[in-house]
C-alpha cells in the first residue's frame, strides 16, 4: 500500500507519454496482432519441417527459407496468404472462376438477399408477436428453443430439396441465410417494440392515439437501436449461412466452395485466403451496418 502511494507522483511526473501510449486501446490491439503474426511466422518452420516436399540435404538456412515458400504447406506464412489474396483479386479478371472477387460476390449476393429477407421476416414476426397475444404465447417459446438447436445442420436439406425441384444457385443459400438471421432480429425487435415504458405509453393514451399511431410514433422509433444491434449479429451469421450453404453442392462457386475445394486438393494457401476473404467480408458487412446505424441515429436526432 505505502510503496504504491509513494510511487504515484514519480510515475505521474515521469512517463506520462509512455503511460498514455500503454493506455491506448489501438496500441494494445496492434501489439497483440503483431504478437500473433510473430507467433505465426515462428510456427511456420516447425509445422512444415517434416513435409516430403521440403528440400533435403541442404544447409539449414536454405531449408528454413524453403519452409516459407512451399506450394502446399501445412501452415502457409502470412505473406503467402496475402500474396495469394492479391493475385486472386487484383491480378485476376473479376469474372474468372479463379478470382476471389468472383467467389466473394457469389457469397455476398446470397448473404445480402438472405439478410434482407431474414430481417424483413424477423421484423414482421416481431410485429405479430407484440400485437397478437396468442402468437406471443405460442410462437416465442419455439423461437427461443430453436436457438438451442444446431440449425445449420438443416442447410444440406434445404440445398438438396430445393435443388431437386429445380432451384439452385442463389435462392437456396439465401433461404438458409434468411432462416439463420431472422432469430436475432425477431428477439431484438420484440425487445425493442416493448421497450417504451408505461409513462410513454400512457402519454400516447392521453393523446387517444390508435394502436397504429402508437406503433408508428413510439414503438417503431424506440426499437431502432435494438434493430441495429440485432442487424449486426444477423449480417454476420447470414454470411456463415451462405458459406455453409455452399458446402453440400460440391464446391461450385463461392467462398465456401473455395474452402471445400481447397481441402479436397490440399491447397492450404487457397483455404487460408478464402478464410481471410470471408473475414474481410464479414467485418466489412458489420462495419456497413454500423455506418448505416450511425447515419440513421443522427437523422433521428440522436446526439453522439
Amino acid at each position: 500500500m505505502t510503496t504504491e502511494a509513494l510511487a504515484l507522483p514519480r510515475s505521474r511526473a515521469g512517463g506520462r507519454i509512455a503511460a498514455g501510449i500503454a493506455q491506448s486501446k489501438a496500441v494494445a490491439v496492434l501489439a497483440i496482432v503483431a504478437l500473433i503474426v510473430l507467433a505465426w511466422y515462428a510456427a511456420v518452420y516447425p509445422m512444415n519441417a517434416d513435409l516430403p516436399s521440403m528440400p533435403k540435404e541442404v544447409p539449414f538456412a536454405e531449408r528454413f527459407a524453403a519452409a516459407y515458400a512451399l506450394d502446399r504447406p501445412v501452415l502457409p506464412a502470412p505473406h503467402q496468404v496475402i500474396a495469394e489474396l492479391w493475385k486472386t483479386t487484383v491480378e485476376t479478371r473479376a469474372t474468372s472462376p479463379r478470382s476471389l472477387l468472383f467467389h466473394g460476390w457469389v457469397t455476398l449476393s446470397s448473404t445480402l438477399v438472405g439478410f434482407a429477407l431474414g430481417s424483413l421476416l424477423g421484423i414482421v414476426l416481431a410485429i405479430g408477436i407484440v400485437s397478437v397475444k396468442p402468437l406471443e404465447k405460442s410462437l416465442l417459446p419455439w423461437i427461443i428453443a430453436s436457438q438451442t438447436i444446431p440449425i445449420l445442420a438443416v442447410a444440406p436439406i434445404v440445398i438438396v430439396v430445393l435443388g431437386s425441384i429445380g432451384l439452385t444457385g442463389l435462392v437456396p443459400k439465401a433461404i438458409i441465410s434468411m432462416y439463420l438471421c431472422f432469430f436475432p432480429v425477431t428477439i431484438g425487435m420484440v425487445k425493442g417494440f416493448t421497450s417504451p415504458d408505461t409513462m410513454q405509453l400512457d402519454l400516447m393514451r392521453t393523446y387517444s392515439a390508435s394502436g397504429l399511431q402508437t406503433f408508428a410514433k413510439l414503438r417503431w422509433p424506440a426499437s431502432v437501436p435494438f434493430l441495429f444491434a440485432s442487424l449486426k449479429v444477423a449480417v454476420a451469421i447470414s454470411l456463415v449461412g451462405a458459406i455453409v450453404g455452399e458446402l453440400p453442392t460440391g464446391a461450385q462457386a463461392g467462398l465456401g466452395a473455395r474452402l471445400l475445394s481447397g481441402s479436397y486438393y490440399g491447397q492450404t494457401v487457397q483455404i487460408w485466403s478464402a478464410l481471410f476473404a470471408s473475414s474481410i467480408l464479414a467485418s466489412g458487412l458489420v462495419l456497413a451496418v454500423a455506418l448505416i446505424e450511425r447515419v440513421t441515429m443522427r437523422l433521428m436526432g440522436a446526439r453522439p
Partner: peptide, 26 residues
C-alpha cells in the same frame, strides 16, 4: 492484455470462424 484482447475477441465473434474447419481437418 485486456485492452488488446477484448476488441479482438469482439471482432472475431463476427467472423465466420467455422471456416477454419478444413484447416483443422488437415
Amino acid at each position: 492484455l485486456r485492452r488488446g484482447l477484448l476488441p479482438l475477441g469482439n471482432f472475431v465473434s463476427a467472423l465466420p470462424v467455422i471456416g477454419i474447419a478444413p484447416i483443422m481437418v488437415m
